[in-house]
Simulated scan of single mutants.
Amino acid sequence: MHDVTSSAAGTLITSNFTDQLQISVWEETVLSIHDGNAILPCHFFSGFLSHQIIVLWQRVETKEILWSYYHGQNQLNEQSQQYSGRVSLFPEELERGNASLKFENVKLNDAGKYMCSVRTPLENSTGILSLQIAAYYTEPSLRIVQTSNGTNFIFESRGFPEPTVSWLKDKHLDISALSETLCQLGEDGLYSVQSSLQINGTSMSSNFTFRLLNDVLQQSISWTFELSSDIDTGIENRYRWILLAVLVIAELVITAILISKKPVSLKPAK
């Protein structure tokens, strides 16, 4: 019999076979950070000595064995090599009904479903949960490229999963449709994101904001910069810039030297 009930801590999923043995998984999905650690929870109502308890952790999709415990000790002869040295039980907690698995150095390809099986002299039961992996996006780097049509501002960052990217003008006007964003999945499983916005002379007295959102981790990155110009009417808006970009904590500081008839400055918006 399979029961599902609600609690303040989340959804309690239980696999019921007898009144003596019941496995509880307090989270249907466990979220972990790439290269971080995770605890895959598995609890049962015990009342037995450790040598009477058998615990088996497996990956559902591949049937690979992460950890097995019986006869009062760990049994790792059939453990999959990719989990060797990265997973472990809490043996002192088994008699208290805690068969949770500690997962270290979690990778993106570890995402999937995992099954905890517990057997006692009376009965056996299983519980299944999902492991979701995400990676914080790196602080974006900025490249500025001058073209015949204007100036391209290009932000680049890496993380997981695919983010939501947007551009704003004067802090409220969404101009994302004017930008170009490319997301590519790398060999390490992380997304490389490149987003560019071309600005021409008609937008020289405005501020612009680049935003990147990692919904899974609720991570938000925002960079705002301001362009100002005192160019006289009738002067052709063709510029060649030599720019030195310096990133300081959460601010974007750019020093610009303009080769033109009138000066144009690029500075962080306040």
Rank of each mutant, 00 (worst) to 15 (best):
S125Y: 02
S100Y: 07
T138S: 15
E104G: 11
T151Y: 01
N152E: 14
T120I: 11
E93S: 14
N105P: 01
C116S: 07
R119V: 11
A99D: 07
Y114H: 03
A111H: 10
I154N: 03
A111C: 09
L122Q: 14
Y137D: 07
S125G: 12
L142P: 08
K102Y: 13
P140I: 02
M115H: 00
T138K: 09
G150E: 10
L101V: 02
M115N: 10
K102F: 13
L142Q: 07
Y114K: 04
S148H: 12
G112K: 05
V106S: 10
Y137Q: 08
L101G: 03
A135W: 04
K113R: 12
L142W: 06
K107S: 13
G97E: 06
D110P: 04
S117R: 12
K102V: 10
I133K: 09
P121H: 05
L129K: 01
Q132E: 13
L108P: 08
F155A: 02
I133A: 07
Y137V: 07
L108F: 06
L94Y: 09
E93M: 12
L101R: 02
G150A: 10
G150N: 10
A111S: 15
S100C: 06
R119D: 04
L94E: 09
P121F: 05
S130L: 00
N149G: 08
Q146W: 03
I144W: 01
T126Y: 10
E123I: 03
D110W: 08
S148W: 09
A99Y: 08
L129N: 07
P121S: 09
V145T: 14
N105Y: 11
T126Q: 12
N98F: 01
P140R: 05
V145Y: 09
L129D: 00
A134F: 04
T138P: 05
S130A: 10
K107Y: 08
E95Q: 12
S141H: 03
V118L: 03
A99C: 12
E93R: 13
R96Q: 14
D110A: 06
S130M: 00
L94G: 08
Q146L: 07
T120N: 07
Q132Y: 05
N105A: 14
N98H: 03
S125I: 09
G127Y: 01
S125T: 15
Q146R: 13
R143M: 10
E93L: 13
K113P: 00
E139P: 00
A135G: 06
L129V: 01
T126F: 09
S117D: 00
A134G: 15
T147L: 10
D110S: 06
F155P: 03
L108S: 08
E139I: 11
E104L: 14
L131A: 02
T138W: 05
R143T: 12
L122I: 14
L131Q: 04
L122V: 15
A135Q: 12
D110L: 07
L94V: 08
T126W: 00
N149T: 13
T151E: 03
Q146A: 12
R119Y: 07
F153P: 03
R119S: 15
K107H: 11
G97L: 05
